[in-house]
């Protein structure tokens, strides 16, 4: 009998509480599925009082060629995204059947056995950021960052997937920067090529999966101000990445000492650049005032 799917996530020590909560939600619905955490950090840096309920594989155990260089050139965020295909390959070797990836900031609300059924006939499952034309207020942002979201994918052990992962990891190893002007967004934008380059790719058009800030405008999941889910049956997974954490989610991660874990600095990669959105917006408004000179000089010339 083929083995059950293996679920995994990839994170730094400072996201371990999120990963444990994801694991709990999986075990609740699939006590028989294996759940692993791929750690882009050294296991020995995990605070002593933390006892992981789930097996952790750290990046050193993968013995990656060229990891030192990746660590030197990528930011913390880029690095953990770019390690994803390497961990996928590792876990696929371990499971030799089917693997499913969720961002560590995800929770599942339903059994997900339908994914395994899709993989009976397909090799790769990808999930689009958006499903409905003309709903998101600025669709070009999605074009810029990726039609597909890399916070979820599922793979079946096959020659097709071996070549997919070899290609993906080569690109994240050498060109895993976040640089939208150049068409680079760590691991995610590479997925654009996948339906054209590989066979048996399923584009999962399922509203309930990988709900996140990027698609909330087309998926009304709250029933009231308290963010109660409108219809729990329709929600398969929510990804809290970049979203203001709901109170219920905060409580869950705090059970695992999130406040302590959050303070652990990643040991690989360079610090993320400061978020300058606020400063940039002010500067943009100041420059807008300057256009008055253009307007005036165009008028008199």
């Amino acid at each position: 009998m083929p083995s059950l799917p293996l679920i995994f996530t990839v994170c730094h020590i400072n996201q371990l509480a999120n990963a444990f909560v994801l694991g709990d939600s999986i075990k609740k619905h699939h006590p028989d599925y294996q759940f692993f955490i791929g750690l882009v950090d050294s296991k020995k840096n995990i605070p002593a009082k933390i006892n992981s309920p789930y097996p952790i594989i750290d990046i050193e155990e993968l013995n990656l060629d060229g990891f030192a260089e990746m660590s030197r050139k990528y930011t913390w965020d880029e690095l953990s995204a770019d390690c994803k295909p390497f961990f996928a390959q590792y876990f696929l070797e371990k499971n030799k059947n089917k693997i499913i990836y969720f961002d560590c900031t995800s929770i599942i609300y339903q059994p997900i056995s339908f994914l395994s059924e899709i993989l009976d006939n397909q090799s790769i499952i990808l999930v689009p950021q958006l499903l409905h034309a003309g709903v998101h207020p600025d669709e070009k942002q999605i074009l810029n960052t990726g039609i597909f979201h890399s916070g979820f994918f599922a793979l079946k052990h096959s020659t097709e997937v071996v070549s997919f992962l070899n290609w993906w990891k080569e690109n994240t190893k050498t060109k895993g920067f976040h640089d939208l002007c150049k068409g680079l967004n760590a691991d995610q934008l590479w997925l654009e090529h996948v339906p054209a380059m590989f066979e048996k790719v399923s584009i999962l058009k399922e509203e309930g999966i990988n709900i996140g800030y990027w698609n909330l405008s087309e998926r009304n999941i709250y029933s009231d101000e308290n963010k109660t889910l409108i219809d729990e049956k329709k929600v398969i997974s929510v990804n809290f990445k970049g979203l203001k954490y709901w109170k219920s989610y905060k409580n869950l991660i705090e059970q695992y000492q999130d406040t302590l874990l959050k303070t652990v600095k990643p040991s690989y990669g360079i610090p993320n650049p400061k978020d300058k959105t606020f400063q940039k917006n002010i500067a943009k408004n100041i420059r807008a005032i300057n256009y008055i000179f253009d307007w005036f000089l165009d008028k008199i010339s």
């Binding site: 689009p128 958006l130 499903l131 409905h132 034309a133 669709e139 070009k140 942002q141 999605i142 074009l143 810029n144 960052t145 039609i147 597909f148 939208l180 002007c181 150049k182 068409g183 654009e192 339906p195 054209a196 584009i203 058009k205």
Partner: peptide, 25 residues
């Protein structure tokens, strides 16, 4: 305007297979 995800008509069409049914690559 590559930095903002725009390249004439062509880049928009990237959405076709996810937005619409029975799109054949």
């Amino acid at each position: 305007d590559l930095c903002n995800g725009l390249f004439v008509d062509q880049h928009w069409a990237e959405f076709f297979p996810v937005y619409f049914d029975k799109v054949f690559i």
